[in-house]
Design a protein around this nucleic acid. Structure first.
Length: 231
DNA sequence: GCGACAG
DNA sequence: ATCTTGTCGC
């Protein structure tokens, strides 16, 4: 069902910003587009996204894996090899990863109801992490799940699966630390676009029944490393 | 006040 | 992200 005849629907990435200042300006402007509210449509399919990098070459493999929420079965997946044209700069991860992730998403045959990104959503210095950027560009529900905490005061949640604490920046709540398994380090969940933090937190917990990392991201991560090791 | 910030 | 084995525990 993918029609590649035309897609001027990505003005944001007609070109990458030429320097940090421009990137920051883009984020600051786009941050106003983020919607923090749940859609009416139910979430039945979720896509996990990730990028694996080769150790010595500049090769990168972006993966998108769509899982059925009901049983977390894999419904579809896409892999795309490429190179990042932007370096990793704290706070500007989206400019490094989004182009490749979008290509992987385009290669999917199934359009997921929601995307789960590896990294921050609103838990970002300018409230516009990778998950927000992806969500706004696709105008789709998105959630960010990071393995490391932001430089904000974070109170450790209780030791049991499901326990969590809110993460605030000033007066606003920008995310939460969520314990997805008993006794493991928490993951940091934040809204990317078109969903609420409560929904994001509940969904991520539901999607992580056996491991610390939620299944969508875990599946994408594993697929990426496999394909990187193969060819 | 300055600097620290996902992958 | 990536470099890296065995080992402790359920």
């Amino acid at each position: 069902m993918s029609d590649t005849s035309e897609d001027p629907s990505r003005p944001v990435y007609a070109r990458l910003p030429s320097d940090e200042a421009e990137a920051v300006a883009m984020q600051t402007e786009l941050a106003g587009c983020v919607v923090v509210a749940d859609d009416d449509r139910p979430v039945d399919t979720i896509a996990g996204l990730d990028i694996a990098y080769d150790k010595h070459s500049d090769a990168a493999v972006a993966t998108a894996v769509v899982l059925r929420r009901e049983d977390r079965a894999v419904l579809d997946s896409a892999v795309v090899r490429g190179v990042s044209d932007f370096p990793y700069i704290p706070g500007l991860l989206a400019f490094r990863e989004l182009p490749l992730l979008l290509r992987a998403i385009e290669a999917l045959a199934v359009t997921p109801d929601l995307y789960v990104c590896d990294g921050y959503g609103l838990t970002h210095p300018r409230r516009f992490g990778l998950a927000c950027h992806l969500g706004v560009v696709l105008d789709a529900p998105a959630i960010g799940v990071a393995k490391n905490p932001p430089h904000l005061p974070v109170t450790a949640p209780g030791p049991r699966r499901g326990e969590w604490t809110a993460i605030s920046a000033g007066e606003e709540t920008v995310g939460c630390a969520l314990r997805t398994q008993d006794g493991v380090k928490p993951v940091y969940v934040s809204v990317g676009h078109r969903c609420t933090l409560d929904t994001a937190r509940e969904l991520i917990l539901e999607l992580a029944p056996d491991y610390r990392i939620p299944e969508p991201i875990r599946a994408a991560d594993q697929l990426g490393r496999r394909r990187l090791a193969e060819a």
